[in-house]
């Protein structure tokens, strides 16, 4: 009898925790739509902040632009080193000593708090190299932050490609780079793209590193490398923290979450596409 009750309680625990996760996500999304949805309009998306103090009225266009600039720059900076490192780990180094060390370093990098990356870029870029608070510094900080994400996801996508292809190609005497270019890379493309998208989403949501390197309360976000930019997550923080406008804060949060969920879902569908390809 007592046993049956324990069993029932355990089962209750498992179900409740599982369903709670679902409820949390739904609650977040529904609440944001409820509070922020009514304030989203074409004006909100396409206009600059207005009113006094700035931000109490108007829109968030420069913040959207700034975020896009930041993640674009982060990707431009990190994609080549990220992919080459992944290629080294999956095709060239394999299980060698150097690859082991690089794997360890990349893994540790993934665990570094993003504010630390911000701190580093602040000292190196903003102060020492004289970039100031700027798009360039922010893009650089975000690039460091997403580098391990790109490496790990691309490495795993490449490693998932059928080993037989490498064996066959190798037996024909063709080079690794030729095999990579003609067979392995195209075969892993969906998975790699999914990883890049995840990295983009991660960068778009990051606040701490840009807060100390790139973000301004008001900026035009023209794309000039050495100018500060606005960014969605930082703008949300300011709207709330400076008590500018709760309504705008909810609407900004909704735009940000919407953008990230969109990227996330795209990435998820690409990785399931990749899984289907791999099973073939």
């Amino acid at each position: 009898m007592k046993k049956a009750i324990t069993d029932l309680l355990l089962l209750g625990w498992f179900w409740v925790s599982g369903l709670l996760i679902l409820v949390i996500l739904l609650a977040i999304i529904i609440y944001l739509i409820w509070r922020g949805g009514p304030f989203i309009s074409s004006g909100f998306i396409l206009e600059s902040p207005g009113g006094f103090p700035l931000g109490t009225e108007g829109g968030i266009f420069p913040a959207i632009k700034g975020t896009l600039w930041l993640i674009l720059l982060a990707l431009v900076i990190s994609i080549v080193p990220g992919l080459l490192t992944a290629i080294y780990l999956s095709e060239y180094g394999r299980s060698g000593r150097l690859a082991e060390i690089i794997n360890l370093l990349v893994q540790s990098m993934a665990g570094i708090p993003s504010i630390i990356t911000g701190l580093f870029v602040y000292a190196l870029g903003v102060v020492t190299l004289g970039w100031g608070i700027s798009l360039l510094a922010g893009g650089f900080a975000l690039a460091i932050m997403v580098f391990p994400v790109i490496v790990v996801s691309s490495r795993d996508a490449l490693l998932a490609v059928d080993e037989n292809y490498r064996l066959v190609a190798n037996s024909l005497g063709v080079s690794k780079s030729y095999t990579l270019y003609r067979v392995i890379f195209p075969r892993a493309a969906a998975g790699i793209t999914a990883g890049l998208l995840l990295a983009l989403g991660y960068a778009a949501g990051a606040t701490a590193p840009i807060m100390v390197t790139a973000a301004a309360v008001i900026a035009s976000s023209s794309g000039a490398l050495l100018e500060p930019v606005m960014a969605l997550p930082y703008h949300l923080y300011i709207l709330f923290n400076e008590h500018l406008s709760m309504n705008h804060a909810y609407a900004t949060a909704l735009v940000l979450v919407g953008l990230l969920l969109f990227i996330n879902i795209l990435a998820l569908s690409l990785s399931s596409l990749q899984e289907r390809i791999n099973r073939h």
Partner: peptide, 15 residues
């Protein structure tokens, strides 16, 4: 669960 990791920390902090 994947999507929950995709929501940025500033949004969690804000909510």
């Amino acid at each position: 669960i994947n999507m929950l990791t995709g929501i940025p920390s500033v949004v969690y902090g804000f909510l």
